[in-house]
């Protein structure tokens, strides 16, 4: 465990906490894409199947359970909670899951580390996570008033991905035979998707004005 990896995981955890804070205390999910949250729930459900097959560390197990539990509870809140669900921007959140899920599934059956169910699902989870933020970014662009918590949530998610890249660079130079091409390429693609958002986020921060993405 290096500092970049730990900082990345903590930033990921912080993003989830910010989102849960918004949903649980303000009882609002305005500006949050249910599509993205469902894609994350599928991502973690398919990637963390190894909870049942491999033990890596106490830290690893606890974090996996947290990310699984939080992603499914966020989906539950947005779909079922009698107050929270009313704030969901259903008409704006129109991205189709299947346009993302199907290509990822196809890609995973062709490009994986080994042709086993576990490895195909692992690759699928990486491809899906790389694009899962797209419905959220589309929704942000359509939202005239992006509240602070939503902006911070997306910023923390992007920061988590950027820190993971630093973690891979560090590990590549410090560990023998540490090579994960699929993870790296997906990670870089995923981080690039945030580039535009980062640009406007820093602009609004520098000028101290409300975040708004150009249509």
């Amino acid at each position: 465990m290096n500092i970049f990896r730990l900082a990345g995981d903590m930033t990921h955890l912080a993003s989830v906490l910010v989102l849960l804070l918004k949903i649980h205390t303000i009882k609002s999910c305005a500006g949050i894409s249910l599509k993205t949250q469902e894609l994350y729930a599928i991502t973690f459900a398919t990637r963390y199947l190894d909870l049942f097959t491999d033990y890596i560390s106490f830290y690893n197990t606890v974090m996996k359970i947290i990310f699984l539990g939080s992603s499914f509870s966020i989906v539950w809140y947005m779909r079922r909670h009698k107050v929270v669900r009313r704030s969901y921007d259903r008409d704006q959140d129109t991205f189709r899951h299947f346009f993302l899920i199907l290509p990822c599934l196809l890609l995973a059956t062709f490009i994986n580390e080994k042709l086993t169910a576990k490895e195909v699902l692992w690759a699928f989870s990486l491809y899906l996570e790389a694009v899962a933020i797209l419905p959220q970014l589309v929704l942000l662009q359509r939202t005239r008033n992006i509240d602070n918590l939503t902006g911070q949530y997306v910023f923390l998610l992007g920061a988590y991905r950027a820190l993971y890249i630093l973690n891979w660079i560090y590990r590549y130079f410090t560990e023998a035979r540490y090579v994960h091409w699929i993870t790296w390429i997906c990670g870089v693609v995923q981080t690039l998707l945030y580039a535009d958002f980062f640009y406007y986020y820093f602009q609004s921060w520098k000028k101290n004005v409300k975040l708004e993405l150009p249509a």
């Binding site: 190894d50 560390s57 974090m63 580390e113 080994k114 994960h180």
Partner: peptide, 10 residues
């Protein structure tokens, strides 16, 4: 290569 399968990241 045995450790190819070890995936310790989240």
């Amino acid at each position: 290569d045995d450790d190819e399968g070890v995936k310790d990241e989240l």
